[in-house]
Protein backbone atom coordinates (compact mmCIF):
# COMPACT_ATOMS: atom_id res chain seq x y z
CA UNK A 1 0.00 0.00 0.00
CA UNK A 2 1.59 3.24 -1.11
CA UNK A 3 1.47 6.62 0.47
CA UNK A 4 -1.30 8.95 -0.48
CA UNK A 5 -0.88 12.69 -0.93
CA UNK A 6 -2.74 13.05 2.33
CA UNK A 7 -0.10 10.97 4.14
CA UNK A 8 2.67 13.08 2.69
CA UNK A 9 0.84 16.24 3.61
CA UNK A 10 0.44 14.97 7.18
CA UNK A 11 4.18 14.40 7.41
CA UNK A 12 4.96 17.83 6.03
CA UNK A 13 2.47 19.33 8.43
CA UNK A 14 4.27 17.70 11.35
CA UNK A 15 7.46 19.35 10.19
CA UNK A 16 5.72 22.69 9.67
CA UNK A 17 4.44 22.68 13.21
CA UNK A 18 7.80 21.82 14.65
CA UNK A 19 9.93 24.60 15.99
CA UNK A 20 13.33 23.83 17.38
CA UNK A 21 13.78 26.62 19.84
CA UNK A 22 17.34 27.71 20.51
CA UNK A 23 18.37 28.09 24.14
CA UNK A 24 17.63 31.50 25.63
CA UNK A 25 21.26 31.98 26.63
CA UNK A 26 22.30 31.37 23.06
CA UNK A 27 19.90 34.02 21.79
CA UNK A 28 21.36 36.58 24.18
CA UNK A 29 24.91 35.57 23.43
CA UNK A 30 24.48 35.83 19.68
CA UNK A 31 22.72 39.16 20.06
CA UNK A 32 25.63 40.41 22.13
CA UNK A 33 28.07 39.22 19.49
CA UNK A 34 26.09 40.81 16.68
CA UNK A 35 25.83 44.18 18.37
CA UNK A 36 29.47 43.99 19.41
CA UNK A 37 30.46 43.28 15.84
CA UNK A 38 28.44 46.31 14.75
CA UNK A 39 30.41 48.38 17.21
CA UNK A 40 33.65 46.80 16.19
CA UNK A 41 33.04 46.83 12.46
CA UNK A 42 34.25 50.37 11.78
CA UNK A 43 37.03 49.90 14.28
CA UNK A 44 38.14 46.71 12.65
CA UNK A 45 37.94 48.28 9.24
CA UNK A 46 40.01 51.17 10.48
CA UNK A 47 42.35 48.74 12.14
CA UNK A 48 42.67 46.87 8.88
CA UNK A 49 43.60 50.04 7.13
CA UNK A 50 45.88 51.04 9.93
CA UNK A 51 47.66 47.74 9.75
CA UNK A 52 48.19 48.22 6.07
CA UNK A 53 49.41 51.72 6.66
CA UNK A 54 51.51 50.69 9.60
CA UNK A 55 53.10 48.03 7.45
CA UNK A 56 53.56 50.34 4.53
CA UNK A 57 55.42 53.03 6.46
CA UNK A 58 57.99 50.76 8.11
CA UNK A 59 58.51 48.93 4.85
CA UNK A 60 59.11 52.22 3.14
CA UNK A 61 61.64 53.30 5.74
CA UNK A 62 63.14 49.85 5.83
CA UNK A 63 63.73 49.95 2.09
CA UNK A 64 65.19 53.45 2.36
CA UNK A 65 67.42 52.31 5.19
CA UNK A 66 68.55 49.24 3.33
CA UNK A 67 69.29 51.27 0.26
CA UNK A 68 71.12 53.87 2.35
CA UNK A 69 73.14 51.25 4.14
CA UNK A 70 73.93 49.59 0.89
CA UNK A 71 75.05 52.84 -0.59
CA UNK A 72 77.10 53.61 2.49
CA UNK A 73 78.67 50.20 2.42
CA UNK A 74 79.54 50.56 -1.20
CA UNK A 75 80.94 54.03 -0.63
CA UNK A 76 82.87 52.84 2.36
CA UNK A 77 84.29 49.93 0.46
CA UNK A 78 85.11 52.23 -2.40
CA UNK A 79 86.96 54.80 -0.35
CA UNK A 80 88.56 52.42 2.11
CA UNK A 81 89.47 49.77 -0.33
CA UNK A 82 93.17 49.18 -0.37
CA UNK A 83 94.91 50.67 -3.23
CA UNK A 84 95.30 48.28 -6.00
CA UNK A 85 98.25 46.14 -5.49
CA UNK A 86 100.92 46.30 -7.97
CA UNK A 87 99.62 44.63 -10.85
CA UNK A 88 100.65 41.13 -11.02
CA UNK A 89 100.33 39.47 -14.26
CA UNK A 90 99.16 36.46 -12.32
CA UNK A 91 96.10 38.23 -10.90
CA UNK A 92 94.41 39.79 -13.81
CA UNK A 93 91.06 38.67 -12.56
CA UNK A 94 91.23 40.80 -9.40
CA UNK A 95 91.70 43.89 -11.40
CA UNK A 96 88.72 43.26 -13.47
CA UNK A 97 86.47 42.11 -10.63
CA UNK A 98 87.22 44.79 -8.08
CA UNK A 99 85.56 47.77 -9.72
CA UNK A 100 82.46 45.89 -10.66
CA UNK A 101 80.49 46.33 -7.40
CA UNK A 102 81.19 50.03 -7.48
CA UNK A 103 80.02 50.38 -10.98
CA UNK A 104 77.00 48.21 -10.23
CA UNK A 105 76.05 50.22 -7.16
CA UNK A 106 77.12 53.53 -8.55
CA UNK A 107 73.63 55.02 -8.84
CA UNK A 108 73.11 54.49 -5.12
CA UNK A 109 75.97 56.79 -4.19
CA UNK A 110 74.30 59.84 -5.51
CA UNK A 111 71.36 61.42 -3.82
CA UNK A 112 68.25 59.36 -4.11
CA UNK A 113 65.94 60.78 -6.68
CA UNK A 114 62.97 62.42 -5.14
CA UNK A 115 60.10 60.01 -4.87
CA UNK A 116 57.64 60.45 -7.63
CA UNK A 117 54.85 62.67 -6.56
CA UNK A 118 51.73 60.66 -5.99
CA UNK A 119 49.44 61.02 -8.87
CA UNK A 120 46.49 63.13 -7.87
CA UNK A 121 43.36 61.11 -7.62
CA UNK A 122 41.62 63.33 -10.10
CA UNK A 123 44.27 62.41 -12.64
CA UNK A 124 43.25 58.77 -12.58
CA UNK A 125 41.74 57.28 -15.69
CA UNK A 126 38.17 58.24 -16.24
CA UNK A 127 35.56 56.10 -14.65
CA UNK A 128 33.85 53.40 -16.61
CA UNK A 129 30.52 55.05 -16.44
CA UNK A 130 29.98 58.41 -18.10
CA UNK A 131 27.38 59.25 -15.48
CA UNK A 132 29.91 58.85 -12.75
CA UNK A 133 32.33 60.92 -14.76
CA UNK A 134 29.72 63.61 -15.02
CA UNK A 135 29.18 63.55 -11.29
CA UNK A 136 32.91 63.78 -10.87
CA UNK A 137 33.00 66.83 -13.01
CA UNK A 138 30.83 68.68 -10.54
CA UNK A 139 32.91 70.80 -8.21
CA UNK A 140 33.08 69.46 -4.73
CA UNK A 141 31.98 71.91 -2.11
CA UNK A 142 33.18 69.93 0.83
CA UNK A 143 36.24 70.39 2.90
CA UNK A 144 39.37 68.42 2.24
CA UNK A 145 40.17 65.84 4.86
CA UNK A 146 42.97 63.38 4.87
CA UNK A 147 41.71 60.20 3.26
CA UNK A 148 41.22 57.40 5.69
CA UNK A 149 38.70 54.75 6.30
CA UNK A 150 36.73 56.71 8.85
CA UNK A 151 36.33 59.57 6.43
CA UNK A 152 35.48 57.15 3.68
CA UNK A 153 32.74 55.61 5.77
CA UNK A 154 31.51 58.98 6.88
CA UNK A 155 31.17 60.17 3.31
CA UNK A 156 29.01 57.18 2.55
CA UNK A 157 27.06 57.63 5.74
CA UNK A 158 26.36 61.28 4.93
CA UNK A 159 25.20 60.30 1.49
CA UNK A 160 23.04 57.56 2.95
CA UNK A 161 21.55 59.91 5.50
CA UNK A 162 20.73 62.44 2.81
CA UNK A 163 19.06 59.78 0.71
CA UNK A 164 17.09 58.46 3.65
CA UNK A 165 15.87 62.00 4.19
CA UNK A 166 14.86 62.20 0.55
CA UNK A 167 17.59 64.69 -0.33
CA UNK A 168 19.36 62.80 -3.08
CA UNK A 169 20.76 65.99 -4.58
CA UNK A 170 22.67 66.55 -1.34
CA UNK A 171 24.01 63.01 -1.42
CA UNK A 172 25.58 63.31 -4.85
CA UNK A 173 28.41 65.69 -3.86
CA UNK A 174 29.35 63.36 -1.02
CA UNK A 175 29.39 60.42 -3.38
CA UNK A 176 31.30 62.50 -5.87
CA UNK A 177 33.91 63.25 -3.27
CA UNK A 178 34.06 59.60 -2.28
CA UNK A 179 34.54 58.67 -5.91
CA UNK A 180 37.39 61.12 -6.27
CA UNK A 181 39.13 60.25 -3.04
CA UNK A 182 38.59 56.51 -2.99
CA UNK A 183 38.29 55.34 -6.56
CA UNK A 184 39.46 51.86 -5.61
CA UNK A 185 37.33 51.64 -2.50
CA UNK A 186 35.96 48.36 -1.27
CA UNK A 187 32.65 50.17 -0.97
CA UNK A 188 32.23 50.71 -4.70
CA UNK A 189 29.07 48.63 -4.67
CA UNK A 190 27.53 50.69 -1.88
CA UNK A 191 28.63 53.95 -3.43
CA UNK A 192 27.16 53.11 -6.80
CA UNK A 193 23.90 51.90 -5.32
CA UNK A 194 23.60 55.11 -3.34
CA UNK A 195 24.46 57.13 -6.44
CA UNK A 196 21.61 55.52 -8.33
CA UNK A 197 19.15 56.24 -5.55
CA UNK A 198 20.51 59.77 -5.24
CA UNK A 199 20.15 60.41 -8.95
CA UNK A 200 16.56 59.19 -8.81
CA UNK A 201 15.75 61.46 -5.91
CA UNK A 202 17.42 64.31 -7.76
CA UNK A 203 14.97 63.74 -10.62
CA UNK A 204 17.64 62.47 -12.96
CA UNK A 205 16.13 59.10 -13.84
CA UNK A 206 17.85 58.72 -17.19
CA UNK A 207 21.26 59.01 -15.64
CA UNK A 208 20.16 56.73 -12.81
CA UNK A 209 18.95 54.16 -15.29
CA UNK A 210 22.20 54.25 -17.24
CA UNK A 211 24.13 53.97 -14.02
CA UNK A 212 21.93 51.10 -12.89
CA UNK A 213 22.57 49.15 -16.07
CA UNK A 214 26.28 49.41 -15.44
CA UNK A 215 25.74 48.50 -11.80
CA UNK A 216 23.71 45.38 -12.59
CA UNK A 217 26.36 44.36 -15.06
CA UNK A 218 29.14 44.79 -12.53
CA UNK A 219 27.25 43.40 -9.54
CA UNK A 220 24.61 41.03 -10.90
CA UNK A 221 23.90 39.44 -7.52
CA UNK A 222 24.11 42.58 -5.45
CA UNK A 223 21.95 42.71 -2.38
CA UNK A 224 21.11 46.29 -3.38
CA UNK A 225 19.57 45.13 -6.61
CA UNK A 226 16.07 44.75 -5.27
CA UNK A 227 16.02 48.19 -3.70
CA UNK A 228 17.41 49.74 -6.87
CA UNK A 229 14.95 47.99 -9.12
CA UNK A 230 12.12 49.01 -6.86
CA UNK A 231 13.27 52.62 -6.90
CA UNK A 232 13.69 52.54 -10.66
CA UNK A 233 10.21 51.16 -11.12
CA UNK A 234 8.85 54.45 -9.83
CA UNK A 235 10.45 56.09 -12.86
CA UNK A 236 9.39 54.00 -15.83
CA UNK A 237 11.58 54.38 -18.86
CA UNK A 238 9.99 56.58 -21.48
CA UNK A 239 8.71 54.53 -24.35
CA UNK A 240 9.77 55.86 -27.70
CA UNK A 241 6.87 56.59 -29.96
CA UNK A 242 7.61 54.94 -33.29
CA UNK A 243 5.24 57.30 -35.05
CA UNK A 244 7.11 60.27 -33.77
CA UNK A 245 8.62 62.16 -36.63
CA UNK A 246 12.36 62.32 -36.57
CA UNK A 247 13.95 65.59 -35.72
CA UNK A 248 15.23 67.91 -38.34
CA UNK A 249 18.37 66.76 -39.96
CA UNK A 250 21.08 69.19 -40.60
Amino acid sequence: MSLTPKDIEAMLQAERESLARPPAQLIERVLGNVTASADAAPVSLVAKKTVQQSLAVPLKWLSVTVLGLGAAAVAYSFFTAPAPKPVSPLLPVERTVAPSPVTRQEPLEGPLPPPPAPAPMRARPPTRNPVVAKIEAQPSTHSVVEPDTAWELELLERARTSIQAGRGDEALPWLNEHQQRFPESVYIEERNSLAILGLLQAKRPDEARAHAEQFFHSFPRSIHRTAIEKALSAFPAPTRDVTESPGPRN
Binding site: L26, V30, V34, R160, I223, H224
Partner: peptide, 17 residues
Amino acid sequence: PDAAQETFEIALRRWEH
Protein backbone atom coordinates in the same frame (compact mmCIF):
# COMPACT_ATOMS: atom_id res chain seq x y z
CA PRO B 1 25.08 29.63 16.15
CA ASP B 2 27.79 30.90 13.82
CA ALA B 3 25.48 30.79 10.82
CA ALA B 4 22.73 32.59 12.72
CA GLN B 5 25.14 35.18 14.03
CA GLU B 6 26.55 35.84 10.58
CA THR B 7 23.06 36.16 9.19
CA PHE B 8 22.08 38.81 11.69
CA GLU B 9 25.41 40.59 11.39
CA ILE B 10 24.84 40.98 7.67
CA ALA B 11 21.25 41.99 8.34
CA LEU B 12 22.44 44.72 10.67
CA ARG B 13 25.00 45.93 8.17
CA ARG B 14 22.32 46.00 5.47
CA TRP B 15 19.74 47.43 7.81
CA GLU B 16 19.16 50.58 5.81
CA HIS B 17 18.09 48.49 2.82
